[in-house]
Simulated assay, not measured.
Amino acid sequence: MSFRIRPATPNDFDAIYEMAKLTGGGFTNLPADKATLVQKLSKSEVAFDKEADEQGNDCYIFVLEDPAAGIIRGTCQVFGQVGVTQAFYSYHLSTLTQWSPELGKTFRNQMLTLTTDLEGSSEVGGLFLHPGLRAGGWGMLLARSRYLFIKAHRQRFGDRLLAELRGVMDEAGNSPFWDALAGRFFDMTFPEADGFNAVNGTQFIADLMPKTPIYVSLLPESAKAVMGQPHPSGRAALRMLQEEGLVFDRYVDIFDGGPTVTAPTDQIRTIRESTEETVTEIGEGGKVKMLLAAGRLRDFRCVRAEVKRIGRRKIGITRESAELLGIDEGAQVMAVAR
């Protein structure tokens, strides 16, 4: 079974929709809503066809495909710029220190402040791998292919990259953080609000959410315990993000309290360490395990490969890898160690 990453097309709708239904909710970038997914795929088509190499309100959707078997088992997304058509809201967790001379005590209070600090950043998200494929390291291919795409199209992305992770929910799909905070200002359950946000955007947050800071000490323990924590199913994704250099800078999701991690784009490990190589031999490959990416925009492909180092910036790869990438000898590829 040989998988590759390629841009999604409208023909992938059925497979992506089936995966969206498996997420269990809270996946804003991959809602199980047919109309929204059709719209997202259409927007992705426009992004891949855009001629101008400049940052914009683009959404690029990719799939993990076994072309020989004709199956799709994963998907991921990259966003050129957040906060373009609608504000991009986050809570920022800060500390207010106050001193009382009369009591002789110092009080440190944590506060959640509604911000749009991260507007203008690029975003990676929407990553989902079919449960039956989670033991083979294919999630790593999905995740890191996005950084190779960003490097290959660097002018289309900003100087800061972020990722939002789904927060903690109970078995019924309810969020303790939402119930304790935002849910008090909206006549909606968390699943209702999250679904509405996925389809309609965040303007209703601007309309109804209080703008004053929230003292964390006023929240119940159930909310404080999950604030800044990823959903259990997202812990592996958080580790992969951290390995790339993204860090939790005290920004949390306004809906479920999940962590938002950020990093300077050019400091992402895969972007920083990847190099351009020339494929000078297609045959048996070698023993060096790498990720390889080739092609621009709609022709972008990314695979795991066994590579033979031939010389400076020259490599040999297997026939299978070449076919998955759609390249011949002499092609330029982007390579990074696995």
Rank of each mutant, 00 (worst) to 15 (best):
M1E: 07
A8R: 05
T9A: 13
A20M: 03
P31T: 07
A32Y: 04
D49I: 07
K50I: 00
A52I: 11
N57P: 12
C59K: 08
D66F: 10
F79S: 11
V82I: 02
V84W: 10
K105V: 04
E119V: 10
S121E: 02
S122W: 13
E123V: 07
A135C: 06
L141E: 05
L141N: 03
A152F: 08
F157H: 08
L161Y: 01
E164Q: 01
N174H: 12
R184S: 03
F186M: 04
G195S: 04
D207N: 08
L208V: 09
M209D: 02
S217K: 02
L219I: 01
A225G: 05
A225S: 07
G228R: 02
A236N: 14
E244P: 14
E244F: 14
L246E: 04
L246K: 07
F248L: 05
R250Q: 09
Y251M: 12
V252E: 13
D256M: 11
P259I: 07
T260R: 00
E273Q: 14
T275E: 15
M290Y: 07
L291D: 00
L292Y: 08
L292K: 02
C302G: 02
V303W: 03
G311Q: 14
R312L: 10
R312F: 11
K314Y: 06
I315W: 01
I315Q: 14
I317R: 12
T318R: 12
G326C: 05
E329H: 08
M334V: 03
